[in-house]
Design a protein around this nucleic acid. Structure first.
Lengths: 137, 137
DNA sequence: CAGACTGTTATAGTAAACTATAACACTAGT
DNA sequence: ACTAGTGTTATAGTTTACTATAACAGTCTG
């Protein structure tokens, strides 16, 4: 299991993202309880407050309900709300940047999407001008 | 021009990434001077120290040489080194996560390839199991 | 009630990122 | 030499993320 925090994102946000992924993947279904704050904290060797903060993101998004003394539970409709929201965020904010990066690196989007491994020896020796960034003296 | 720092990344790293992008795009060629620390700081309304920190990342990577009193200059071979290194980083670290996200969101290859607006009404009602994250009580 | 589990709040400390202000060091043009 | 442009360092303060430790507040089971 992933006990590491590879990214450059704060842990509490990665935690939030993992729960979101679990909901989307159907590992956590609506009505299910989230693993308890203390358990997660112990399991991932992280401060309970950090876990709580991640969870409360989800509460703020309306995906999860917190019942004191009982636990935190996934709301009805969470998955579809998520599916729509995360899609929009991905297509609107992330994908454009990803596409730029791919092009900049001389990689083919189609190859990547089709899962074919690039040989990584074919490098464009000429820059592919497309969207010249700004610069000023 | 982009004067904003949309991301969740530290500014100095975004700064570094922008310069890298400019090198890859051929906007900045080998031997060229980088825009001066003070100018960038003023232009982007950011602290000179932050700019310097971003630039020094590039020095540490061997992409840029700093000459006191003159400026900072892009090293010979910077672009090809970059092309290889950034590719590896992208394919090894970023793309796998991106792929997971795409699959999780049930996005179609065509939607991604065309800049077309997703109709957002076709949502997979059944989770696409693939790589079940861990959970424990 | 007692005990064991939930979420939550309080207090306090560390580290990283960023900021403001200022000075130092070096190069080039006049 | 003077000046204006480079990079660089020093000092110090703010904010955010994370941590440790502890206590408070509910729920449920025995």
């Amino acid at each position: 299991m992933e006990r590491e925090w590879n990214d450059n994102q704060p842990i509490y946000r990665q935690l939030r993202d993992r729960v979101v992924a679990m909901i989307l993947d159907g590992v956590l279904k609506e009505g299910d309880p989230l693993p308890s704050v203390r358990n997660v904290a112990a399991e991932y060797r992280v401060n309970p407050l950090t876990v709580l903060k991640g969870y409360q993101q989800l509460v703020a998004e309306g995906l999860v309900e917190s019942r004191r003394g009982r636990g935190m539970f996934i709301n009805a409709g969470a998955r579809s709300v998520l599916l729509q929201g995360e899609r929009q965020k991905f297509l609107g904010e992330e994908w454009p940047r990803i596409q730029s990066a791919i092009q900049r690196l001389g990689l083919k989007v189609e190859e990547l999407l089709n899962g074919s491994r690039p040989s990584s020896t074919a490098a464009p020796s000429k820059p592919a001008k497309s969207d010249p960034p700004e610069e000023e003296s």
